[in-house]
């Protein structure tokens, strides 16, 4: 990649989502993601400019390449990727997966399955009902589970999913 193109890429890096940065379709599989990461490394790795004396260029390439690794880190992990994808669909698009997102994802993982004995029991019952096709009862049961864990975002998310399912 020539230097002008690189500087241009660096200047608009905050406007790109990870798929755009890596040159990927939204439905890319894990193999595609790795290939894309390697392709970017071949053209954007800071080592290519190791001996350059252009400090501005070096700062720019460093910024771009760190974003490439960040994109790879997020997209190669199914959980992080799913959470990131959600952020792309909301009106206030979240183009980067931040430390806050990671925290929330972890809380969700902890919350998944319930954090209190009653919540856990009711949640399992709700899942069973939903799998057997009884959507209405499943929703009722999960609402009950939510009364024990009012702050459990995982329960709330699951509820929204079920309520919007047809």
């Amino acid at each position: 990649m020539d230097i002008q193109k690189l500087m241009a890429l660096a200047s608009r890096i905050d406007e790109l989502d990870y798929y755009q940065l890596l040159g990927l379709q939204r439905n890319a599989n894990s193999g595609d993601i790795r290939v894309a990461y390697h392709r970017r490394a071949r053209t954007l790795h800071p080592d290519l400019f190791f001996e350059s004396t252009d400090e501005q260029l070096k700062v720019a390439i460093d910024r771009v390449y760190k974003r490439v690794t960040e994109a790879y880190l997020v997209l190669r992990d199914d959980d992080k990727r799913a959470y990131y994808n959600e952020g792309l669909t909301v009106p206030q698009k979240r183009l980067r997966y931040t430390d806050e997102d990671e925290k929330r994802l972890r809380e969700n993982k902890v919350a998944a399955g319930g954090t209190t004995p009653q919540g856990r029991k009711l949640y399992q019952e709700a899942e069973r009902l939903y799998q057997s096709g009884d959507r209405v009862k499943a929703i009722q049961t999960l609402r009950m589970a939510s009364t024990f864990e009012s702050k459990n975002v995982f329960f709330q998310k699951r509820l929204r999913e079920w309520e919007s399912a047809k």
Binding site: D2, H38, E51
Partner: peptide, 20 residues
């Protein structure tokens, strides 16, 4: 060697290897 050679070539044009 490939790091000190990077100055001699344009980015992406040399046969250097990338360690990720």
């Amino acid at each position: 060697n490939s790091l000190i050679q990077s100055g001699a070539a344009r980015g992406g044009q040399i046969g250097s290897a990338h360690l990720l």
